[in-house]
Computed example of a mutant assay.
Amino acid sequence: MEVDRLINNVCAALAFEDAEFLDQGGQKYVLKGKLSGAPSVAKIVPVIQGPNGEVTLKRAQREVELLSAVDSDRVVKVLTDAIEIGDPTEAVCWVEEFLDGEDLNRTLNHRWKESEVWPLLHDMAEALTACHDLQVVHRDLSAGNVRMMSNGRFVLMDPGLARHLAKSALTGGFQPGTPGWRSPEHVPGGDPVPASDVFALGILAFYALSGAFPIEPHCAQHEYDLALVERQAPSIATLVPEVSAELRTIIDTCLNRQPARRYMDGSELKVALETLGGGQ
């Protein structure tokens, strides 16, 4: 299906008005427009016929299902059901709330102050708590999936690769995740758990403060995988000596190589932040 015709069909199916192209990333097209007069974004995922297309369709449907179930201001809200376009299905689409600001990967071009990192940790711990309470592991908490709002708050997006712990994973033995932002459990043969999301958040905080990854991803895949499994990330204090003891404890615990020695989920991390972070 040609892109222009696809967009026209999507807008008609969603009753999405004043659409303009906003972004393209991964497998999605993103449009900005209005739904019932309110600023919104439409997301479109093309579906290629065949087994891979079936997986793509199910992932998109699951993303909308999860977003509909999560009730948190720190997780993007979905405004419609997932709607299939074409027969056979050529794309699936839905509408989400419009988030101003920009993705985190566009704000990490300078080292953040400690006072900027605490809100990131607090907001993402709240977002993860909302997911983990539903037994959902995000599995791709990367800089591109966190939105930094103009008011300084942070919102978690795109749980399309998430896994419900009580259900079988669509991805089988393959563990998704963005290089640089993966946990040891993302290595093939591993099993991402809520503590894996905590590890990824630790990477975000580490990178924001230092401008470096705790485990360097720019190497051969097998070398990166081996480092994730066998190498303990350095303490953030080795790169940022001036970091407070409280923030060092939070980040270093998030980045423990062994999941049992991290905060086990968003809720436990949230309690630690409230205890150590105080009014930050």
Rank of each mutant, 00 (worst) to 15 (best):
E223H: 12
T178I: 01
D225N: 15
T178C: 02
G144E: 13
P188T: 03
L201T: 08
D158C: 07
G202M: 05
P234K: 09
V240G: 00
A205P: 03
R163V: 02
R147M: 15
Y207H: 10
E230V: 02
G190T: 04
C219G: 09
L209T: 09
A205G: 12
V146D: 10
P214R: 12
A233W: 04
G144K: 06
A208S: 13
T178Y: 01
P241R: 05
P192H: 11
G202H: 06
W181N: 07
P176L: 07
H218T: 14
R182S: 05
V146S: 04
V187P: 04
Y207S: 02
Y207A: 11
P214W: 09
S168G: 14
S183A: 15
P234V: 01
R231T: 07
W181V: 03
A195L: 05
T171F: 14
H186S: 13
S244H: 01
A233L: 05
S142Q: 03
W181G: 10
A195H: 01
D191Y: 14
F154C: 07
I203G: 11
R163F: 02
F199N: 01
G190F: 02
V198R: 09
G160C: 01
Q232L: 06
N151P: 02
L165S: 02
L165A: 06
G190H: 03
L204T: 09
V155W: 01
E230G: 00
L170Q: 11
Q175M: 12
S196M: 06
